[in-house]
Write a protein that binds this DNA or RNA. Structure first.
Lengths: 350, 350
DNA sequence: TTGTATGCGTTATCAA
DNA sequence: TTGATAACGCATACAA
């Protein structure tokens, strides 16, 4: 393996001091044209590249941002990373990534590791934001922005989707279409985003004067398979039902498959809405209704907030909510108020 | 923002030299129990963490690996990253990531950037491996492993799927089921993986004594929508057809949707096979036939090869192909040889 | 068992 | 216009 050439070597070859070489490379001072030319030639020949480590040590800046994510499965986090990546590159920052695969220990460990690597800021995406996270973040002398979680009580900057709000709003849209018999297929009980959506759903019912039946709320694990089984379980409750709200696309698809296997027409007998809008939904024949939001934008905003704090050199609490749009498509139908029967499916374009 | 405390500060507070502090922290030499205790206490109190930059500069090791990927869309690269991440963490290495979003310039630039960051190795995943890539890699004094591309002529280590082979084998499986009228929906013309699969398909036909009709090969862009339109286009050719092989799941799904819209039964009239097996396939009612391979494993193997070369300190050409399995499921049927009609669908479990 | 001194490869300050 | 030299924060060989 070739050895790296350093500034001293270049200086020696040119018969000048390292200071002059540094000035040439960084254009950081006056150099006579002839010596500049000579040095540039040697730099070209030797392929000299300054050791950024040494530079960073001297400058006390690493131009490094760390990002801790809990998963690489599904399109959400990868797209978020992509957004982060874009903004960081525009600002000549580099991205250090750690995927914890849901391990709390791994998350905590990487705050330490990233810190000792002297990253200038950290982006943090976890499934469940805990007190310990908050504690370690507050000890850090660098800015941290939490992604996809609200941390309002803790005064830690975050960028998130307004899960509670869009879940409530989307459910109310179904109510306005005449639905009054709702079921909910939720996510893991420790996934904050899933819980917020569930609360949004529940509050939509309450605010609409409907009762919330515990038996008609099932918690799943986000997968298509589990959506199927949870729908199966809902059907076995033998309750009247005109609408199923699922916490994500996968479970909505599983639910639809299950309903169809039971000879239930979607949406004429039961409407299905997913609180999500991923590429999965596109695979369905039936156009799935859902809520759309951009993970890429979320990543971009997160990175921008972080960079702002890095550059201004101050930690500041701020929060951003990324916009969403609700799309009712073929999987949702209107209910005729008088007798509870459907009167054909409605769907907005797009 | 708090200032970082350094080893000198800790030494001063303890009334010892920095060497002793270093010895305590790294457990790298004899220290009297009482002074050790005292130093550990101060370390605890001050939250001292050694500046890894300085350490790395002194040790000339960064424990950093760079990874350049061309996309974060789709499940392939994210899963690959996950595999890489796992292996790297086991070996106490950190992962610097750059997503080029397909930009050749960005890729080339990040070889430079990563190099100047003194990464100890680079993992590289691009859509089309070019001469320029090869050139810049060969100039690098650190090991590079190419992912998801073969670089045989260039003698650069790689880990890939055997696209050509599984495409050929899967196509022949259809031939063995009696199919002789094939169409192919391919990928972008500059995507090496797509091209290899297409060649595998073509050679399967040739080796089976079948003719290859140019008109029955369409190139698409991997999306469900485009799969639909390419199938539409194939149908408009008005050729006899019993099997469609698509380069990925998305286009296979689009093709199936199109066929169903045209009242063509899958698989009784036309069988469909995707050379892929992603979560998308699970969204379909009809169990899609495809080829399965693990991106996570690919990432792991790539990281292992790279680490081996980093640790042994020598660049070495080696190649690895990740195993695959072919799964014929409901979307594929047997053809009765005599008259070309189907005789029901077959599918292997799983 | 502990301390001193040097090197790691830069940048930056100051003097020449 | 240039060069010497002091940081930057740590590891480590060598001395005590």
């Amino acid at each position: 393996m070739k050895k790296d050439i350093n500034i001293k070597e270049v200086a020696r070859k040119c018969g000048v001091s390292i200071a002059t070489v540094s000035r040439v490379f960084n254009n950081s001072g006056p150099v006579k044209e002839s010596t500049r030319k000579k040095i540039e030639k040697i730099i070209e020949e030797t392929g000299y590249r300054p050791n950024v480590l040494a530079r960073e040590l001297a400058e006390k800046k690493t131009h490094l941002v760390g990002m801790i994510v809990h998963s690489m499965i599904g399109e959400g986090l990868p797209r978020t990373i992509n957004g982060v990546n874009d903004v960081l590159q525009q600002h000549d920052f580099n991205l250090l990534i750690s995927c914890s695969n849901g391990s709390f220990e791994s998350e905590m460990k990487h705050f330490e590791i990233f810190r000792s690597k002297r990253v200038e800021g950290i982006l943090f995406a976890t499934r469940e934001f805990k007190k310990e996270h908050s504690k370690i973040i507050k000890k850090l002398p660098i800015p941290v922005v939490v992604l996809l979680q609200k941390t309002s009580q803790e005064k830690i900057p975050y960028v998130a989707f307004d899960n509670y709000r869009f879940a409530k709003e989307a459910t109310k849209r179904l109510f306005e279409l005449g639905h009054s018999k709702f079921a909910f297929i939720g996510g893991p009980v420790n996934a904050t985003n899933a819980i917020e959506r569930q609360q949004g759903f529940v509050h939509a019912l309450l605010e609409s004067g409907l009762e919330v039946e515990e038996a008609l709320i099932k918690n799943g694990d986000y997968t298509i398979e589990d959506g199927y089984w949870k729908m199966e379980s809902l059907l076995s409750e033998k309750k009247e039902l005109t609408a199923v709200v699922a916490v994500n696309d996968g479970m909505a698809i599983g639910a639809i498959n299950c309903l169809q296997d039971h000879g239930v027409n979607v949406p004429d007998e039961i409407s299905v809405l997913g609180l999500d809008d991923t590429v999965l939904a596109k695979a369905l024949r039936l156009k799935l209704s859902g809520v759309h939001y951009s993970y890429t934008d979320l990543g971009k905003v997160g990175a921008e907030i972080l960079l702002k704090q890095i550059e201004s050199n101050e930690l500041k609490f701020e929060k951003h909510l990324i916009p969403y749009t609700i799309h009712l498509r073929e999987s949702v139908a209107r209910v005729k108020p008088s007798d509870g029967r459907m009167i054909g499916n409605i769907f907005s374009p797009q």
